[in-house]
Amino acid sequence: MRIAGNIPVKIDRIVQETSTIKRFRFVPTEDEKLPAFTGGSHLKTFVSDGETVYEREYSLISDPRNREYYEIAISKDPNSRGGSKHWHEAMKVGDELEISFPRNYFPLNPHAKHHVFYASGIGITPFLSMLQDIQFEQTVELHYAARTPEECAFYEELKEKYADITTFHFSRVEEPNRLTTDLMKEHRIGSHVYFCGPVSMVEEFRDAAFSYGYPERAVHFELFSSGLDNSNLEPFVVSLAESGKQIQVSEKETLLDALLREGVNAPYACKIGGCGSCEIEVVEGDVEHRDHFLSEENRKQRSTILTCCSRAKSTNLTIKL
């Protein structure tokens, strides 16, 4: 059984789910079995086109207890920086690659009486494993938005296995049933809501949930990428209050990159502003918050920065490290 490092696997099946979404299945090449995981987990894949190594995170969609193979689904992103394009155009059955252990930044809440999943497009992926991992006598419902049934990945599978708990919301059909936030007004006490989809959708649902009086702990979301505009970034200087060190952060790197480059033992995990692991206290200077983790209230109350994506508003920033 593997304990550390990455897991070598081989692609043994590829399914074209829709015109833009492919499903890939991995089997282990060295290990007897893969680690079981928990619903909502994702893994990192490492593939290379000979020049660039694409390190990308994808949600696992297979049964969390299935240790024979893993499955992921990848949408071909028109704005791809190369990762999803390479996966769609170059990867074929028999190709070998390394993957990380599964990790979970989007787990099911143990205290919920009822889970409600809101998915848009490829945002359906984490919910596919979560649906197979419901425990503690909890109930669940799924709301899934897509333009048409043809563009709706896993449509047949969901209809077959989860018809009674799934509502499809198609926007470009004769009688559209658009996904709107007011559904959340009707969830019973003890519900937890989960959002996955484009940044705009996640932010709309998150803000709506808070405006309907949902407590923060009942609202969960995952983003596939930071979704940030990384053009027009400005360099700045960060001062470390504890060591007295000063580090130059260029326009091409994140604050976290710069800290790690200089050998500073800075905490981090997801690197896309979603998990809060890299949160550091700010001693002096204003922060340009670019994460999705800190709420407006957090930003006002705690003087902190998520180093993996947020930056200094001006030229200098002092942090407690």
Binding site: I3, A4, G5, N6, P35, S100, R103, Y268, A269
Partner: peptide
Amino acid sequence: RNGDNLIDRVRKFLLGINPGEP
């Protein structure tokens, strides 16, 4: 000495530990 709640820091650190990285 610098006023950090150490328990809180350790807990946050533990949250960041991934499978495969003991």
